[in-house]
Design a protein around this nucleic acid. Structure first.
Lengths: 225, 225
DNA sequence: TGTACATCAGTGAACGCGCGTTCACTGATGTAC
DNA sequence: TGTACATCAGTGAACGCGCGTTCACTGATGTAC
């Protein structure tokens, strides 16, 4: 939202500060987003930041929005990849992704982002006070949707296909989000973080498959005897 | 593990420091577990702590073990409550809890602890480096089991009842833990934290029911059209 | 039972650090006439 | 086109704070003879 003036003293210090904050978050998580270090990286006096940002907390929230948008972009990429795969594999009858494929892609993208960028993931989801921030356009990807909306879109597709009752969407959204977010948290920041990446990727696929199965009624990964 | 000598200068400073650390974690989470404040609360010089604890990080890890044990105790209580309820409701044929009831109780207890004690929850699960800490006896409840073991126990019961394949236990454990942990994280520390408690409790029941359904093959909360 | 001694838990003061934030200011930019 | 002026982005130095950690020490406890 900050306009790039291009010729004042700095050009667009506000945006530069947020960029530096994002870089710090990427390197070492939320606690590394330190106002003084941000100004140091931009090459400016600490005092200068206060012309563009109310305080350290406002800076962190701005960084969180950028991080959430980055996550949305990763999910978009995963969705695009799934659509390509489906188009190439099918002989033409089914062109676009179906709901289950989309749901799986959203889940895989969510976890992949967390594992690739644990620092940004931490900032994106723990600096969020409430769900209102999810609706901020600054927190969306190129398609204008935040990760939570991308999940809703996939579930809506399942409803359109008659594979999910409309009144079950809310519960399914909560269950899927919880499952995917929990795995991402455990594997990116929690007690599973020291496992080899390949093992964590395999776990992600298993959890996502189980969640998709639970929502659509097809259970292949987890089931009774 | 620290022996209570009872008559030296303090008695058992090591345990007192950990207790104070737990109190701080309960009040304001992991970042509040500050070595100087801990010594201040116990009424001792900062320097004295170093006789009992290697550094601030070791103190935090000790607090994390106590927090995890507290969580295990909450799960034990929830399990006991579920057994009472099942006993009272049945006319005698089914005395103890079945696997599905136990699994639901473990999930409900896990989330309940997170919502009741978000600070301890944060310390318990983010100060854990790897799964080895789960096996530390100091991190277990009265029954000697940590929350992760309690989940495994419930799944083992389902296997015994023939409702879950033995080779599906690992996947089911990961899915259940992820789902429950994710919901707990979102509702205790994340963007759902500002919702009214009643709403968060309802969400917990819905998520746990969906997970139990996914594992046992009975799906009532979330399903296809 | 009494004295000398070793142990070691806790003291009191200080170290260097980096933080967020505020002070009165300077000097480059754009604008009005 | 040139000068006077208002704006406001950024300066440089300092504030008070609380942190983790280390210094050489003191003084209470338990033990050996």
């Amino acid at each position: 939202m900050a306009t790039a003036r291009g010729s004042y003293h700095h050009g667009d210090l506000g945006a530069a500060l947020v960029d530096a904050g994002v870089a710090l978050a990427r390197e070492a998580g939320a606690s590394a987003v330190v106002l003084r270090e941000v100004t140091r990286r931009v090459g400016v006096t600490p005092r200068a930041a206060y012309r563009h940002v109310a305080d350290r907390d406002a800076l962190l929230r701005a960084v969180a929005r950028v991080a959430l948008a980055a996550m949305a972009r990763t999910v978009e990429e995963t969705l695009a990849g799934a659509a390509d795969g489906a188009g190439a594999a099918s002989d033409g009858a089914v062109a676009a992704t179906d709901g289950a494929t989309a749901l799986r892609a959203v889940g895989e993208g969510y976890v992949r982002f967390a594992l690739d960028e644990p620092g940004l993931f931490e900032v994106a989801l723990f600096a969020m006070d409430d769900m209102a921030e999810v609706d901020d356009p600054a927190a969306a990807g190129a398609g204008g949707r935040s990760p939570y909306h991308q999940l809703q879109d996939a579930l809506a597709r399942l409803v359109g296909e008659g594979r999910l009752a409309a009144d079950a969407v809310e519960g399914a959204a909560l269950t899927c989000w919880s499952g995917v977010h929990g795995y991402a948290t455990l594997a990116a920041l929690g007690p599973l973080r020291s496992l080899p990446r390949a093992e964590r990727d395999a776990g992600a696929s298993a959890v996502v498959a189980a969640l998709v199965g639970a929502v659509t009624g097809v259970r292949d990964a987890v089931g009774p005897a």
